[in-house]
Design a protein around this nucleic acid. Structure first.
Length: 575
RNA sequence: GGCCCCAUAGUUCAAUGGAUAGAACACCAGCCUUCUAAGCUGAGAAUGUAGGUUCGAUUCCUACUGGGGUCACCA
């Protein structure tokens, strides 16, 4: 498609158009395939956009081009009607190439990406799922764009949430002797204990404050009375995360823990204090005044001497660049941490840190009832959502395919479940808050993963039933295909969409927005369903037409599979 | 209260400052003796309010209204 656009842009230049030439898609198929808006050039020529369009079209009548079938004026636009067989040849040849849709914006540049930065001793809910889904896709988008991505995670295993959770475990154990009869999913159990404890603490803060402070001091001093329980519970969380990472397709190069960098962070705080950048605040806490930057006051060290999240993050920033020598570091978190990251980056800057750091704030996942809150129990855990979707999907699949074996159903339902989870979390603009609706998430119609996987399954079925052996994918295109047999509007629409893939990848990357990809998958799948319902692909007399259409169908499958792959969504043969 | 973000059909979401504001769900009317009906076709339905910039504003600016987030011992 780049090739195609380039040809048209060159022709426009040859008739005197200059500047940044951008070709867009007309709103309706009857209005052509590509359009050039004459607003900019009209100004340059000191005529109205409509006059400029007329002038360009009259010049075009003298030009000859294989690609362009016709050129028409629509008000201020010059619209091009393309020769479908030429488009087919170009697009289908491109799609068959290895790594179709890739670009080289990155020039091998090394970039580090940190997500989802969750905590041990706490629950893993659907908000975390969203960050994981988006993070995974960003890694893929960067890699497809010629960057060398290094995904890492930073797990906070040492904050006051750990203290609260341990306090809760001890309390429960004392009251119920619970440690001997723990459930299998201990990571989840810790999350429950944390929620319960933190709820209790909020209510009876004054009574238990000193107990908590004492526990935190013991923990930081690695006191024997608590360190064993800490290590044990920390291990449960970490094992749980490892399982979830595997399940969700996260491939971290390394996992940093707060306990690794905490002491280094404290040293940086000392330096900041000595340099006069930080100061002593209320009750002897160490703070840094960022009011002149509009960033209020940040706490670097508690009055008890204990560090906070910021303390460790200062050291982590240094460590990351030292270890990986990357040109940029990206953090993906929930948008509620935007202010925090502004403070962090400003402090690093004041400390003479010059490396490029970017924060991407993903919109939170709300429920129809409002914000998720473990306090009121209105939290949807990732595992619960997964199981719910799996159950519905299983029922659906079983009722459709009574003859399928249990193993086959389970395998396919497993793929579909992950697809639904990831698609749901990426169908909206990444930065925007979403309202999660269970009913919608477990409905498998319309703008959803099954709709798209269904198209891939249909194409697989066509390819199986055709009994025509197409060339393997990477032997470029089909040498014996008669592209002029692809003529109808639905075919052209599919070709034009596939031709856009390259630009879609770049757009998604530049906006840090995977929803550009989900939307694209849906558009392409929808165009295919339209095609599928309009024409026959296999039930035809002319074998050459069957072959040409099959090659087109296979191209759609390849592009959809690749795009879904960016979203870390796998496809199925049948469903 | 300060700062940041958001406001589009009944609902959930789209739309680099450009053509008649697109989808999905829900609702109503149709399509399986034919390649997978998790599909397709058709109908109704929307830019919070008031200004401004522009040839042109859902998009940019200002104010207002409503919602969310955040603002040193939480992460």
């Amino acid at each position: 498609m780049d090739i195609l656009k380039k040809q048209i842009i060159e022709l426009l230049i040859s008739v005197g158009v200059s500047g940044n030439i951008d070709l867009t898609s007309p709103p309706k198929a009857e209005m052509g395939d590509l359009a050039f808006g004459c607003f900019g050039i009209a100004k340059e020529w000191s005529v109205s956009p409509n006059e400029a369009a007329e002038k360009i079209v009259s010049e075009f009548l003298n030009l000859k081009s294989e690609v362009i079938k016709d050129v028409k004026v629509f008000g201020p636009y010059v619209n091009f009607y393309l020769n479908t067989s030429v488009v087919a040849k170009i697009v289908l040849t491109e799609v068959a190439k290895k790594n179709f849709g890739a670009n080289n914006l990155g020039h091998e540049k090394k970039v580090l990406i940190e997500y989802p930065s969750q905590n041990t001793h706490k629950e893993f809910h659907i908000g975390h799922l969203r960050i994981v889904a988006i993070g995974n896709t960003l890694v893929n988008l960067y890699n497809k764009s010629g960057f060398k991505m290094i995904p890492i995670n930073y797990v906070n295993d040492f904050g006051s949430h750990v203290v609260k959770c341990l306090w809760g475990v001890l309390k429960r154990n004392k009251e119920q002797g619970i440690m001997s009869k723990l459930p299998e999913n201990k990571q989840r159990w810790l999350g429950e204990v944390y929620a319960e404890a933190s709820n209790y603490i909020k209510e009876y803060e004054l009574e238990v404050r000193s107990e908590l402070d004492d526990l935190q001091k013991k923990l930081e001093a690695k006191d024997k009375s608590i360190i064993k329980l800490f290590k044990q519970t920390r291990g449960w969380s970490i094992d749980g995360f490892a399982r979830l990472s595997q399940e969700l397709g996260i491939k971290h190069d390394k996992i940093f823990y707060e306990s690794d960098v905490k002491e280094k962070g404290q040293k940086i705080v000392d330096q900041l204090l000595q340099a006069g950048i930080a100061e002593v605040g209320e009750r002897g806490a160490i703070i840094i005044n960022l009011e002149k930057f509009g960033l209020d006051i940040a706490l670097l060290r508690k009055s008890t001497g204990a560090g906070v999240y910021l303390t460790s993050d200062l050291a982590l920033a240094v460590e990351k660049f030292k270890k990986y020598k990357v040109e940029e570091s990206i953090n993906i978190t929930g948008s509620e941490q935007e202010f925090y990251f502004k403070q962090l980056f400003k402090i690093l800057e004041l400390n003479g840190f010059k490396n490029k750091m970017t924060h991407i704030g993903c919109g939170l996942v709300n429920l129809p009832s409002g914000k998720m809150s473990s306090r009121t129990g209105s939290v949807i855990l990732y595992e619960d959502l997964r199981d719910e979707i799996y159950a519905k999907m299983y029922e659906e699949t079983k009722s459709r395919h009574v003859d399928w074996k249990e193993n086959k159903i389970k395998k396919i339902v497993g793929v579909l479940t992950m697809a639904v989870l990831k698609f749901t979390m990426q169908k909206h603009e990444a930065a925007k808050l979403i309202t999660f609706d269970m009913k919608e998430a477990t409905s498998f119609e319309g703008f959803s993963a099954p709709y798209i996987l269904y198209v891939v399954a249909r194409i697989n079925s066509l390819l199986r039933k055709s009994k025509i052996n197409l060339q393997p994918r990477f032997l470029v295109s089909e040498p014996k295909i008669n592209y002029s047999l692809l003529t109808n509007g639905a075919e052209k629409k599919l070709l034009m969409l596939m031709g856009d893939y390259n630009e879609i990848v770049i757009k998604a990357l530049k906006n840090y927005n995977p929803s550009v990809i989900t939307k694209y998958c849906f558009d392409l799948a929808q165009a295919f369903n339209d095609y599928y319902n309009k024409v026959s692909i296999l039930n035809l007399d002319d074998k050459e037409v069957i072959k040409a259409r099959l090659v087109l169908c296979r191209a759609v499958k390849l592009v959809l599979t690749d795009a879904l792959g960016l979203l870390t969504i796998a496809t199925v043969q049948e469903m």
